[in-house]
Design a protein around this nucleic acid. Sequence first.
DNA 1: CTGTTGGTTAAGCACCTACTTAACTATTCG
DNA 2: CGAATAGTTAAGTAGGTGCTTAACCAACAG
Lengths: 110, 110
Amino acid sequence: MLNQQLDRVYAALADGSRRTMVDRLTRGPATVKQLAEPLTMSLPAVLQHLRVLEESGLVRSEKVGRVRTCRLEPAALQQAEQWIADRRAGWVHRLDRLEEFLNENEGESS
Amino acid sequence: MLNQQLDRVYAALADGSRRTMVDRLTRGPATVKQLAEPLTMSLPAVLQHLRVLEESGLVRSEKVGRVRTCRLEPAALQQAEQWIADRRAGWVHRLDRLEEFLNENEGESS
DNA sequence: CTGTTGGTTAAGCACCTACTTAACTATTCG
DNA sequence: CGAATAGTTAAGTAGGTGCTTAACCAACAG
């Protein structure tokens, strides 16, 4: 459940165009046109990226009149950050263990 | 350059099996066999996941005798964490501005 | 030397992804 | 109204991903 959501968030971030879109949205809401502007691809392609971002939960959008306005959903971003932070924390804790010292110095005599 | 590396790190993390492998490696180095143990797939499949992890820079491995030992490369993990942290920081800054706006216009209508 | 363990390579297959173009809808402007 | 704007849908295509099985090699263990 949560695992699949993490899959989608990381998969969404694994594309430069989508990261550009996310980056733009950190500076405030934007229309589809505005999100497309810095990208060198057709509008339908942008729509498909947007769909990936929405399905990952990173972005939410709402249509008013003929304009769709997109905004960031920081909870999903935080979830992805947290997973990494937790693992890095575990790794740091391991650094304190004697076992590593022993492994690194195994058979070192001269 | 760096962008492609980020692509690869996020793509590597976008798979539950690979995250399981990374998680295992936060508890110390492991052989291919050990990484494969909790996963319900063939050894060649695990090798392919390992290759993705190595190409992303998240994992480094070394073969001694017939045993390949893998360990985490936390720099890549930190890079991925940092990208998100930077964007979240930008978003938080924007929130402050919104809050400011709301405060300035407090009680202005009913 | 022989068998077992740990890993590796190759080939094949079922999806999935990131685009494209063409055609279309719905809103707003003059 | 009619044209321009903003977005959407559909269909096709090239290439990538995540597995599988079969066959294989290299390093120990007995």
